[in-house]
């Protein structure tokens, strides 16, 4: 088990991502930051004040549960846990920042995009991930990446304080 990022590393990475994201936002376009439950939404919550500190105004925040849109519901069976999606704003015409902790096959993001489309028609969706561990099965790539693992398909685990008690990113060689 190797630590890729510690608490400070995660914070620095998010600050850098916030720089890149805020530079990409079109003028006078309403923005929404939406995190995929259950760790993407926590990262999105942390990005929110960082974006506001960079002059992005009136950023809406939401969390998205993708369980009902997964393509492997038949395989995961009774262990599927459905949580609430909390997006209390209209996504129509908004510039959406979709946040997840790790991207791997791309299937979660496929499900998240379908779930978002069922809520309306955003102006654009940009994908932010903390870690890209390779291994894509669908043609989906992040727009903003915190960190890439050195070789494909190493198992990456993201721990976040509010859920796991501490902030760190670990990789199993």
């Amino acid at each position: 088990m190797k630590t890729l990022l510690d608490e400070k590393g995660i914070r620095r990475t998010l600050e850098r991502l916030a720089d890149e994201i805020s530079a990409s936002i079109p003028r006078n376009c309403p923005v929404g930051v939406i995190g995929i439950r259950r760790r993407g939404d926590e990262l999105a919550r942390r990005l929110l004040p960082m974006l506001e500190a960079r002059g992005v105004r009136e950023v809406a925040y939401g969390s998205l549960d993708i369980t009902l849109y997964r393509d492997d519901l038949a395989e995961i069976g009774p262990s599927a846990v459905v949580r609430t999606t909390e997006i209390d704003f209209d996504i129509e015409g908004r510039y959406l920042i979709l946040v997840d902790d790790v991207i791997f096959t791309g299937r979660s993001i496929r499900a998240a995009l379908q779930a978002l489309i069922d809520l309306g028609r955003p102006r654009a969706v940009r994908l932010v991930v903390l870690v890209d561990r390779g291994g894509r099965e669908y043609p989906i790539q992040p727009d903003f990446t915190g960190l890439r693992t050195s070789s494909d398909s190493q198992h990456v685990t993201v721990y976040l304080e509010s859920i796991d008690g501490a902030d760190k990113v670990e990789v199993q060689p």
């Binding site: 009902l68 459905v82 949580r83 609430t84 489309i117 069922d118 809520l119």
Partner: peptide
Amino acid sequence: AFEDVSTRSVKKV
């Protein structure tokens, strides 16, 4: 979690 399905744009999952 299913409550909001009835109130959103596409009422289906």
